[in-house]
């Protein structure tokens, strides 16, 4: 798959995304927009498109970074407890400061996501049995444990329903004034790009990196900070989008091999294309109602994940 096909797909889908919705706006109207149509475009449709692109891109890229750092294709924010830890953070913020500002929630979520991911890396260090399939299993168990802690506090404070709303990624809530935090992901992506090669080297292990004169700890920490930051931003603005960070990098590596720097732009593009496509699908299937993105990606994503697993087994054995 060439980059230009992906770019073309992105443009076509973006245009579709802008012109699909309950209120009819056709491309022809562009030249004679009514006041109301402009409003809809600016307040709802364009922010939605922008957030789709940012979320799709950044979640895919941090998935790629995690896979490089752990040398395991099946590790991602969903399979390493990052998302669950971030959710616990949001809950703690809600409990401590009843009317917490979004930025505060985001900060607390970030701290928790970072701590959770670091704990997961610690667990990985201690596990002797490094089977490719066993590690995501541990990660998912770890995530479940964090969730059970979240549930405990949520139940005590009658916040179960609030927590549920972060379980399901949903772009229909994206509107002007409520999604801008997502822009924080953009500088993070720039850092990811600058550090790309170093992540690849760090993934080879501590001894290997030291041999090449790389500050291993620092690089790993930067990677984890990126992962935690993006996860918490996306969690707070959109919600959980399961498996996204897992399947996109895997698909790219199937057709392009494993060089992080070369794959970054492909991963980013494919992530955006995939999320926009899923979003459009969710909007048209039960039109005029919407299926949230968490569900569409959850269903399609688990299917793709299963396929990838089967495939990797055919290769491995």
């Amino acid at each position: 798959m060439k980059k230009r096909y992906l770019t073309a797909a992105l443009i076509v889908l973006s245009v579709c995304s802008v012109f699909i919705g309950v209120k009819d706006i056709s491309p022809l109207d562009l030249f004679s927009l009514t006041e109301q149509q402009i409003q809809i475009l600016l307040v709802s449709r364009l922010p939605r498109l922008v957030s789709l692109i940012i979320a799709g891109t950044s979640m895919s890229i941090i998935g790629l970074i995690m896979q490089q750092l752990t040398r395991n294709k099946f590790v991602s924010p969903t399979t390493a407890g990052t998302m669950d830890s971030a959710r616990l953070g949001v809950l703690v913020a809600l409990m401590l400061f009843t009317s917490a500002a979004p930025l505060l929630k985001m900060a607390v979520a970030f701290v928790f996501a970072l701590a959770g991911t670091i704990v997961f890396m610690k667990i990985l260090d201690k596990i002797k049995f490094k089977d490719a399939i066993f590690i995501p299993l541990v990660g998912l168990m770890f995530g479940n444990i964090i969730s059970s802690i979240t549930t405990f506090f949520a139940y005590k404070n009658n916040l179960i329903q609030n927590i549920s709303s972060w379980l399901q990624g949903d772009f229909s809530i994206v509107m002007k004034g409520r999604y801008e935090m997502l822009y924080l992901s953009i500088p993070l992506m720039v850092i990811a790009y600058l550090y790309a090669n170093r992540f690849t080297v760090a993934g080879m292990g501590e001894d290997f990196s030291k041999n090449l004169g790389l500050n291993y700890r620092q690089v790993v920490n930067i990677g984890l900070i990126l992962v935690a930051a993006v996860s918490s931003v996306v969690l707070l603005t959109i919600g959980t989008i399961p498996f996204l960070g897992l399947i996109i990098p895997n698909i790219v590596s199937i057709y392009r091999g494993d060089n992080l720097k070369n794959n970054l732009s492909h991963t980013a593009l494919l992530g955006a294309v995939f999320v926009i496509a899923c979003d459009i699908l969710g909007r048209v299937i039960i039109y005029p109602y919407e299926i949230p993105i968490g569900l569409t990606v959850g269903v399609i994503g688990s299917g793709i994940f299963l396929y990838l697993l089967m495939r990797s087994r055919a290769y491995a054995s």
Binding site: L140, P292, G298, S302
Partner: peptide
């Protein structure tokens, strides 16, 4: 792992219905 993925899949649908 396949079991867990099905779990996530079921979970997605339940959460959707619960909303």
């Amino acid at each position: 792992l396949v079991g867990i993925i099905f779990g996530t899949f079921f979970g997605s649908i339940s959460t959707f219905l619960q909303v």
